[in-house]
Design a protein around this nucleic acid. Sequence first.
DNA 1: CGCCAAGTTGAGACCTTTCAAACGCTGTGG
DNA 2: CCACAGCGTTTGAAAGGTCTCAACTTGGCG
Lengths: 239, 239
Amino acid sequence: MLQSQVSAESLPHAEYDGPTPVLRQWAAPGLATLVAGLPLQRRCMRARQYLFRAGERRQSLFLIHAGCFKTCVISPDGREKVTGFRLRGDLLGIDALDMPHYACNAISLDVGEVWELPVAQLRDSLPDFQQRLTAVLASEIRRDWGWMLAIGTLSAEQRVITFLLDLSARLEALGFSARCLTLRMTRADLGNFLALQLETVTRALSHLQALGMIGVERRQIRIEDPSGLRAMLGTASLH
Amino acid sequence: MLQSQVSAESLPHAEYDGPTPVLRQWAAPGLATLVAGLPLQRRCMRARQYLFRAGERRQSLFLIHAGCFKTCVISPDGREKVTGFRLRGDLLGIDALDMPHYACNAISLDVGEVWELPVAQLRDSLPDFQQRLTAVLASEIRRDWGWMLAIGTLSAEQRVITFLLDLSARLEALGFSARCLTLRMTRADLGNFLALQLETVTRALSHLQALGMIGVERRQIRIEDPSGLRAMLGTASLH
DNA sequence: CGCCAAGTTGAGACCTTTCAAACGCTGTGG
DNA sequence: CCACAGCGTTTGAAAGGTCTCAACTTGGCG
């Protein structure tokens, strides 16, 4: 249980030589260590299980301890948009900190575990907890802007590359392999997030594989040539 | 000086019957009244003047008192992305609250005035200032998600409509006319924000004018048929 | 008065979408 | 144990929306 990304971890570690251009700001580190001593409510998740839904009464924040989640918003007329894929260390629910109800859906893509944070209590006991929250929020804004930039200025293939490099770097920061990743989301989710059709995502992956840049086997992705991929971003036709 | 949007204000007020579907969360209100008594540094701006640039040392936050600003991020390889257009009451610089340097450029699109907020001082004197900040940050995240949704799921024309309705509603909330608006940004800025080419923006505006939905005269936009516009969003082919 | 930035419009090319079909897993029931 | 349904993925071919490039117009400003 909770063993998401083990397949990646069992593979050899590899170098990752430099940050992805823009998408390079993560949440404030160390929140997990901060709450280590507290009596937290732990909650295990199955794949495709909702952690919470937009509109539900917001009781607490959740710190991801294991697994992979997607967050998505849905417009009144039914259009859906995946706003991000969240990994261990990410906070879920912060976007509704000032509201009585959640503002998005949070769905587990795999088995996982979250820790429920008692916000009011933490605010009192930890002097700089509130400031930590603002840091997490600000960095989420910058992350979103990075993706808006990518979606607005890059071709389909470049967006997919950006996603792969970003995910690779995030997984590596968590101690997993940067070269071999398991996508926990469907092509449809990925396309939705990158503002592409799922077929376009598939084609981009196939093409990158044909170029020898990556290896694709269903949701297992091997990054064969990281610097080659990064070079394909630099040669941006600026759209 | 500071008389941005006067042209709109001098025109008759008109009804705005209902919120724009998704993009409907604004910054926490009343920040201006909160800081009313404090000895704030005021700063006047000209058109095209930078309030701050990404990378500059961040000293303070700025509360827009008058005018219109754009914020934008620039990737290392020179791709630019307008992340938003900011009006009176909006806070500039919050996205870098946890950093020593600004994370975006803030550029005045018109004459305007900002109030410089001494963050550290406010944090001490106003008990819930920090909490207000988190509210502003969270609402910025939701706003960004709304635009990501629009850009990812709507056609060019629908994005332009969404922008016009959003701006109209924001201006009305500030006491300006909801029917007659002055765009302070160029077509290029608008296109950049909406992930479209400037020519596509022009064509969308021309087409909406041909349909009798709006009147276009350079940067003066008259919204002739708000519900008609909103209907064009509902008839989304879901891309 | 003339230059220049901003905006408009047209025509063609191109990338992505759309629609369709086939394939491969996975879980279920006979 | 295998057949089968169902979802996710892959690939092809055609259509279409947006981009690109270009010319022209307009209004502002030195």
